[in-house]
Design a protein around this nucleic acid. Structure first.
Lengths: 210, 210
DNA sequence: GCTAGGCAGTAACAATGGTTACATAGTATT
DNA sequence: AATACTATGTAACCATTGTTACTGCCTAGC
């Protein structure tokens, strides 16, 4: 844990803070698909991501989902950042996209460290800033783009996150993430294949030239 | 300024902080329609709203707009909150929705006060929290609702913000805010009128029962 | 090999929203 | 009052997306 913490956060946190994290934090390895947080749940701790990726989702009234963004190494969940103020419930669902290593920090420490460590303040403000900007980017694509562009963006981002040029998902799963129907995705994917941009296979999609 | 600051923020900021704000802040009265901030601009100060409302917009590649949310009394612009970290440019446009009174605080103070005052930390974290949640609500309505529901929500919110049951806007202006076309808005408004929910007039809309 | 279940392809159709075009009605300017 | 401008009403049409239904295909389990 100590080595991995230093590798990921050593350059942004001061020595004393690193030591405090080591003392109160718990190292966790999360398997792909594990649900870290659900809507309406109370927030217990804040995760500092060391490796892997977490997908953050929003849910509509019918229980259908919409992918918001991914958290990666060096990120934290900004939704947990306000938990220390009161009994804030989660507005989002978080699921491990890949096997993930992280350190869980008890939320009580957050307020304390914010007063104490400048590097922690910077980290927290940066996190908020990044999350807000990610949300805006997501909102842009939903509000301004048509489904074909959203799909291309989704495939690119997914490939980047998983460090592969193959998307290991069914059309149905993609449809859930983009909040549309399987038929729509199949239709658009077929068009992309005909344009020579991807190759379609059962349960996976090979990206050629997006 | 002092009285108005205390009336709006006296119950959340400690005495010493109020005094600092009085020393370094500048009181401003902003007329309706004034552009406080545009996309790509560097952020100079953070506004603490005393009265009035500010609409916050996002822009697409064609220069068309989309209303994100309103800032009201007790709010601050969370986009400015990260400016102190580096040279962050604004991602949004902010325009006074009504005549607005606010206090501008130089951004350098933010980091200093975050270390020094617990009430300031709470305020900042609360602001981020509220802004994130507002953004999520906006995103929900764009992603999950159809235009008729978005329009109803828009009219309700606009009436609430302006403390009137009359919306002083043309169909074209509403269309801009919702990122759609005037014809679509006219069509839907006419339906709402036929359902007895609103009354249409030139340049304004009377809300009956939304 | 056979079968059941999940996955993908596709057609046909419906619903929603965006576009163009034009008519009409207020309002302001002269 | 004549004119010009802006706001609104509405029809017709198109594009995109969503829905339903049915097909065949692959694969795991028997």
């Amino acid at each position: 844990m100590i080595q991995e913490l230093k590798a990921s956060y050593g350059h942004i946190f001061e020595e004393a803070l690193i030591n405090e994290i080591i003392q109160v934090g718990t190292y966790k390895e999360i398997p792909e698909g594990y649900k870290l947080m659900d809507i309406g749940e109370y927030i217990k701790g804040m995760p500092l991501l060391i490796s892997g990726a977490i997908k953050v989702l929003r849910e509509d009234n019918d229980g259908d989902e919409l992918l918001l963004y991914y958290l990666e190494q060096g990120d934290t969940c900004s939704m947990t950042l306000t938990c220390c103020m009161g009994d804030a419930k989660s507005e989002i669902r978080a699921i491990a996209e890949t096997d993930t290593k992280l350190i869980m920090v008890p939320v009580q420490k957050m307020e304390e460290w914010t007063a104490k460590y400048k590097s922690w303040r910077n980290f927290i403000f940066n996190s908020y800033h990044n999350r807000l900007n990610e949300l805006l980017t997501t909102l842009d694509s939903i509000a301004f783009d048509k489904m074909d562009m959203r799909l291309i963006g989704y495939l690119k981002e997914k490939a980047r996150i998983n460090k592969e040029d193959t998307i290991q998902n069914t059309h149905q799963e993609i449809a859930y993430d983009l909040h549309t129907s399987r038929v729509v995705i199949s239709r658009l994917l077929k068009k992309l294949e005909q344009m020579g941009k991807i190759e379609l296979h059962r349960n996976h999609i090979k990206i050629l030239d997006l």
